[in-house]
């Protein structure tokens, strides 16, 4: 699949170098709170419900300590990616049972301009398959470092 540009969908305000969450639900909420604080989402409960239902469809963990919680909602207008890193890791019902330390949350509207939502998810999956990238992402402390890793192919 063609790599899709991710940088334009990342926001410095939606970056947590050290997450507090210790459970799956807390992790979803902690990341979603960033969208709410930055007004990408007005109604938190509505989107939280959607994210929980998405987890019901299957864990969004890809194994190897990474997860990409995602979903489309009527309650947003932009395709935005939040990043979170957890030092201790969070149990996320991964198939390999590994605690998740790297999170990319993607929230998108139903009708996104240029149909970029699925290609963005695909690009994240590709990046996260790369062991070197994962190791580097697990050491990220600033937003600039994150962007450099995402941009630098």
């Amino acid at each position: 699949m063609q790599r899709h540009e991710l940088r334009g969908h990342l926001r410095e305000a939606l970056f947590i170098p050290s997450m507090k969450a210790t459970t799956k639900d807390q992790a979803l909420e902690e990341l979603l709170d960033l969208f709410v604080a930055e007004r990408y989402v007005r109604n938190k409960q509505l989107v939280l419900e959607m994210l929980r239902q998405r987890e019901m469809l299957g864990s969004t963990s890809l194994g190897k300590g990474v997860a990409v919680p995602h979903g489309r909602t009527t309650a947003t207008a932009d395709v935005i990616i939040a990043f979170g890193r957890s030092e201790k890791g969070v149990h996320f019902d991964a198939s390999d049972e590994k605690p998740v330390t790297l999170f990319f949350m993607v929230i998108a509207p139903h009708n996104d301009e240029g149909n970029i939502y699925l290609p963005i998810l695909g690009s994240l999956v590709t990046i996260l398959k790369d062991t070197k990238k994962r190791n580097a992402l697990n050491k990220v402390t600033t937003f600039a470092e994150l962007v450099a890793l995402i941009d630098g192919e």
């Binding site: 699949m1 019901m56 469809l57 299957g58 864990s59 969004t60 890809l62 990409v68 198939s95 699925l118 998810l121 695909g122 999956v125 398959k129």
Partner: peptide, 8 residues
């Protein structure tokens, strides 16, 4: 894309 879908 590579996500596991188990709960349809």
């Amino acid at each position: 894309l590579g996500f596991s879908i188990t709960g349809c």
